[in-house]
Structure formats: structure tokens, C-alpha cells
């Protein structure tokens, strides 16, 4: 079985993201870029499945400009066997990403596709579900536990009400949550080995995917600042104030 893992190049989670003064975007000048942390967890899970003998090959896929090769190399250094860059100069919205991934799936015929539950830049949380829909295969989102049993998998999902368990037939799309595993650190010698692993580059056009139906992204604004509220004198006033606001 092959496992396909999607990884996205995003502004590192430690970076304090700041909206540009003219509202045209966020300041990415000189900021650290990383693999989306949820995708790192997806890759770690794929590697563990492979290393346990339940898959033969782990392929990392990313859509973007050539700069995303850096993140693909990180994936290879973590242990993926090969990488595919879906080359596009435009930032893809989830539907286009899902369509492009579907084309790669048709070429590679994976038994499992693992993705992060969302990317920490646009926070869309759509691509995995869209891919499953287009592929007409099962989806299991926000996985905190994944067990393979032959042609199916048992997935524990983190939902608002607790932990939901579902069983899905493979092939399927699983998107992963924070608690699934702790990704490994990359070993220095593996960085060197990763330089020699294969990286295929295929353009969006070659895949036959056209970008359609994009949402138009307009003005960027910083979040509203919280303002100073009122002061109360004692516990009784506090309780009254909370009751007035319907909070008690």
C-alpha cells in the first residue's frame, strides 16, 4: 500500500502574524516558513504505519511554487520515500487543491491519504473533506487515533462532544488532529539523504486542473482590540453584572 501525505508550506506557528498597513495581506517578509504542523503529524503517522510494515511507500505531496520544495525536503528528511510538487504560481484554494490531489491519486493509487485537519495559515479546514467527496471515498476528520485492519481502518475522531469512533473502508482520506502523535525530530544525516531522494515536479496544467470558482479575498484587517470594560466593587456586584449579561 502507498500512503499519500499532503504537506503545506505555511508561516511558522511561532511567528507573530501581522497585517500590512495597507490591508493587502500579512507581512511575510523574512518570516520563518515551515511545514503545517498538522501535516507533520500526518506524515509522522504515515511513517509509523510504513515502519510497522503496513505500507510500502510514503509519498509527500505539496502544491505551490518552487519554494515549497523546501518543505517537501523536510518531509523527505523525516523519512518519506519520495515527493511530488504540484507546481503552481498561484496560491490554491481548497477546491483546486483537492482537484489537483485527486489527479495525483489517480496516478499513484494510494491506499490511504493523510492530511492535517487544517492549515494554520488560512484555517480553512476543507481540503481533506473535499478530496474525499470528489474521490467518492470515506473521510475521517480530526483523527486522534488510527488503526488499520486490513482493508479498513478504525478512527477515533476528536469531536466537540468527545471522542467519536468510526470504521472506514480503504482507500480513504484521514485528516489528523494534534493528539495523534508527536512528530519526530529530523536527524542531520537524514537531511543529507533527503537531498538525494526523488522529487517529481508536475504542473497544474499537466494534471489538467484549471483554477475555477475562487473566492475573492479582499481587505485584510487586524483583529479588533479588546477594550477596557467596567470595574465593580465587590462580589455581589460582580454576580449581578454577570446575571445581567445572561452569563449566570
Amino acid at each position: 500500500m502507498k500512503i499519500l501525505v499532503g504537506i503545506k508550506r505555511v508561516v511558522d506557528y511561532n511567528v507573530r502574524v501581522r497585517v500590512l498597513a495597507d490591508g493587502s495581506g500579512v507581512d511575510t517578509d523574512g518570516v520563518k516558513m515551515s511545514v503545517n504542523p498538522f501535516d507533520e503529524i500526518a506524515l509522522e503517522e504515515a511513517l509509523r504505519i510504513r515502519d510497522a510494515g503496513n505500507a510500502e511507500e510514503v509519498i509527500v505531496v505539496s502544491a505551490g511554487g518552487d519554494e515549497c520544495q523546501q518543505q517537501l525536503r523536510t518531509g523527505l528528511a523525516m523519512g518519506a520515500d519520495r515527493a511530488i510538487q504540484i507546481q503552481t504560481s498561484e496560491g490554491l484554494q481548497p477546491l483546486s487543491t483537492a482537484r489537483a490531489f485527486l489527479k495525483v491519486i489517480e496516478r499513484e493509487d494510494p491506499g490511504l491519504v493523510l492530511l492535517g485537519k487544517q492549515a494554520i495559515d488560512d484555517d480553512n479546514c476543507q481540503t481533506g473533506q473535499m478530496l474525499a467527496a470528489l474521490w467518492e471515498r470515506p473521510q475521517a476528520t480530526s483523527a486522534s487515533k488510527l488503526e488499520l485492519n486490513g482493508n479498513s481502518a478504525t478512527v477515533v475522531r476528536e469531536v466537540d462532544a468527545g471522542l467519536e469512533t468510526i470504521e472506514i473502508d480503504l482507500p480513504a482520506v484521514v485528516t489528523v488532529d494534534l493528539r495523534l502523535n508527536e512528530p519526530r525530530f529530523v536527524k542531520l544525516p537524514d537531511i543529507m539523504k533527503a537531498k538525494r531522494k526523488p522529487m517529481d515536479v508536475v504542473s497544474l496544467e499537466e494534471l489538467g486542473v484549471a483554477i475555477e470558482g475562487n473566492l475573492e479575498i479582499g481587505h485584510y484587517a487586524p483583529p479588533p482590540q479588546r477594550e477596557q470594560g467596567i470595574m465593580v466593587e465587590d462580589a455581589a456586584q460582580l454576580v449581578e453584572e454577570l446575571k445581567n449579561r445572561g452569563l449566570l
Binding site: R18, Q93, D121, D122, L215, I217, H219, Y220, P222, P223
Partner: peptide, 29 residues
Amino acid sequence: NQVSDIMAVNAPTSFKRPIYAGNAIIDVE
């Protein structure tokens, strides 16, 4: 494409939504 996490409505097809964990708010049409 889906509009995720509508936090305000500008017009019937235009919305505000948070990105970067709420560190930026964008208009989406």
C-alpha cells in the same frame, strides 16, 4: 469553495472571517 468561519456579514455574498488563528480578519466574496 467554502467560506469558513463567518464572523460577520458584509453583504449576502461577502463575509468577514478570521485567518492565522484570528490574527487577521479578511473579507471574502
